[in-house]
Design a protein around this nucleic acid. Structure first.
Length: 210
DNA sequence: TCATTAACACGGG
DNA sequence: CCCGTGTTAATGA
C-alpha cells in the first residue's frame, strides 16, 4: 500500500505524511461495478483514490441516477468534507468504474492534518476546486447541450478516466448515467457509428475519434 | 421537433 | 433462455 500511496500522492505529499496515512487509514478494495458508497451511508473518513476510477452519481427519490463526475487516482472525494459541518451522511452514490483501491482516512486525522500540513491542506482544497469545476461542466452540459452533445461529452470523459478507447458498458448504463431513456441512447450511438466516431459491439463501445 | 414509453424481433453468450 | 440491442409507433412537452 505504501508504494501505491507514493505512486498516487508522492508528487504532492511529503514522505512522513504518506507514512502516517498508511498507518491510520483503512485500505479499501472495490471491484468494477461495485457500489462504494450510497446516499444515506455514514461517512467514515476521507477517501483517497490510489488506483482505478470511481464515478459519482446523484440519485433521486425514484432511484434514478445522474452522473456528476469521475474520480481518478490521486483524487479525493470533495463531498465528504461536508462532514466537517455536521452532516455525516453521504449525499451521493459512488460506483467503481474500474477495479479500484483507496485509503479511507479517519475524519479526526483529516482535521488534524488540515491544520498541521500545508501539503495536505492544498491537496484537499485543490481536489475540492477540481470537483467544483467538473460539477459546473456537467451543469453546463445539462442546461445547454442536447442529448447528442451530452452523449459525446460522456463518452470522451469515460475514455479519459479509463485511459482506453474501449468502453465496457451498455446503452442502458449510459442512459441511466445521463438520466434519459435507452432508446435515445441507442439511436444517438447508432448515428455516431454511422459518422465513423465509434464502433458498437455487445457490452462494448470502441471510440475511434471525437 | 425531439424525448419518452411501450412493444417487438433479432441474436449472442 | 436471458439480456443487450435496434427499431417503430404513439404520445407528450
Amino acid at each position: 500500500m505504501q508504494e501505491l500511496l507514493t505512486e498516487a500522492y508522492g508528487p504532492v505529499l511529503n514522505g512522513n505524511l504518506l507514512e502516517e496515512i498508511a498507518e491510520s487509514g483503512h485500505f479499501r478494495d472495490a471491484e468494477k461495478g461495485e457500489m462504494v458508497m450510497d446516499i444515506g451511508d455514514t461517512i467514515q473518513g476521507l477517501p483517497m483514490l490510489l488506483q482505478g476510477a470511481v464515478k459519482v452519481l446523484r440519485v433521486d427519490d425514484n432511484g434514478e441516477e445522474l452522473l456528476l463526475y469521475f474520480l481518478e487516482s490521486g483524487d479525493s472525494c470533495a463531498m465528504t468534507l461536508g462532514s466537517f459541518f455536521g452532516s455525516s451522511k453521504s449525499s451521493i452514490r459512488a460506483v467503481a468504474e474500474q477495479d479500484s483501491k483507496m485509503v479511507i482516512v479517519p475524519l479526526d486525522k483529516v482535521h488534524d492534518w488540515m491544520g498541521k500540513h500545508a501539503d495536505f491542506r492544498q491537496l484537499v482544497f485543490e481536489s475540492f476546486n477540481t470537483r467544483l469545476k467538473e460539477l459546473i461542466e456537467s451543469m453546463d452540459s445539462l442546461a445547454f447541450m442536447d442529448l447528442h452533445g451530452r452523449v459525446a461529452k460522456y463518452l470522451t470523459d469515460r475514455v479519459k478516466v479509463n485511459g482506453s478507447t474501449t468502453l465496457d458498458t451498455t446503452h442502458a448504463e449510459i442512459a441511466a448515467d445521463l438520466h434519459t431513456s435507452r432508446v435515445v441512447v441507442s439511436r444517438i450511438l447508432k448515428q455516431l457509428e454511422r459518422e465513423g466516431m465509434l464502433e458498437l459491439h455487445r457490452n462494448r463501445i470502441e471510440v475511434i475519434a471525437f
